[in-house]
């Protein structure tokens, strides 16, 4: 689940939670130039796909820290 508010999603029991941008626009940022907005969207989708293929044993946040 891509969520602007991961603490809420995780408390509700969502197992794989990706940190989205903000409530008004979860999966992108219209304030950015189209190209950068596209990059944000791509990063979120790729992170979501990576989350889907990762085994978890409870609500887990995928905020990019797992890449470092």
């Amino acid at each position: 689940m891509i969520s602007a508010l991961p603490p809420l999603a995780m408390q509700a029991g969502a197992n794989r939670v990706v940190q989205g941008v903000k409530i008004e626009h979860v999966c992108g940022d219209p304030a950015l130039p189209a190209e950068e907005d596209g990059a944000v969207r791509r990063r979120l989708v790729e992170r979501g796909l990576r989350a889907l293929t990762t085994a978890v044993d409870g609500p887990t946040l995928f905020d990019g820290a797992e890449l470092r």
Partner: peptide, 9 residues
Amino acid sequence: TRWGALQEK
């Protein structure tokens, strides 16, 4: 309250 981004909250 009702900020749009988690970091703002």
